[in-house]
Design a protein around this nucleic acid. Structure first.
Lengths: 145, 145
DNA sequence: TAAAGATGTAATGTTATGAGTAACAACTAG
DNA sequence: CTAGTTGTTACTCATAACATTACATCTTTA
């Protein structure tokens, strides 16, 4: 399938809401920055709201973060917007009558879980605050060229 | 998209070749175990061959591993069969005229690389030998029920 | 209160990617 | 020579992600 950009776009939205806190925070304005469309932005914001990361108000363009960016990890955002958070996928149609086909699914599931844990541990150590800060540092460098 | 099963199927093939070393190793027999089709098996075997993990011979169904399973890691196999090995993907269409859109791509690339490294380090520590061993242990348990 | 504009959400269309399928040249083995 | 196999390509099909459209509901403001 096409690669998912949900995590990237969700981080984008959260960073935008924080950086342009006093500007236009309509889904249309954010969509212009993501180069996407307002409906996608609203859908992602809905997922972030359900996860308790973002507050929004119907009819009024005033989203705001519900947690300090320093305590919001990439993993929190990932879990909020990726319905199936699995990075690797077992082939669940193998022949159970074969030694390999009958046992590889559970075997790989265990291995993939270890990989998933390692990735998630790393995601948990990256905060939204760090990402926002890096965005701003990069912007200052761009401006000084 | 549909989720990729290439890694799972590649491990399946390698484990099959090792476990059924003296049996029928035709792409058709392996495909029956994977519950897939011979062409897919041959395609994956081609990738494994190019990576130096498997030897095959045109016209003759005698594939064999080129390295000790104890020295072949899940990462080796992953790199062999996943053309784009990236687990997370940056949205590369963002508005460069915006502070966020203009700097988030490089920022996320760095973060995703850290996650990728963590996942790959874990993959590197899982060997084909361990997976094969677990498959056989599970099979013994199944037989004793 | 009415109009304008925003969100929340669902339905539908488009597109990219993975897997399935078929075909065939090149090779091996009996 | 024949049957069977691999290596490879082209094509079809299924599915998931994103785009688009639409509209009910709510907020704001004149």
């Amino acid at each position: 399938m096409r690669y998912s950009h949900r995590l990237s776009d969700a981080v984008h939205i959260l960073a935008y809401v924080e950086i342009y806190r006093d500007g236009d925070l309509s889904s249309q304005a954010i969509a212009a920055s993501v180069e996407s469309n307002p409906a996608l932005v609203r859908r992602l914001m809905g997922a972030l709201r359900q996860a308790g990361l973002l507050a929004t108000q119907r009819g009024s363009a005033q989203p705001h973060l519900l947690r300090d960016p320093a305590t919001m990890s990439l993993l929190d955002i990932y879990r909020a917007v990726e319905p199936d958070g699995d990075l690797l996928h077992v082939d669940d149609r193998t022949n159970p009558q074969c030694i390999v086909g009958g046992n590889i699914q559970e075997t790989l599931r265990g291995a993939y879980q270890q990989v998933q844990r390692a990735a998630e541990n790393q995601m948990a150590q990256i905060t939204l605050a760090e990402l926002i800060s890096e965005i701003q540092v990069r912007e200052r460098k761009r401006a000084n060229l």
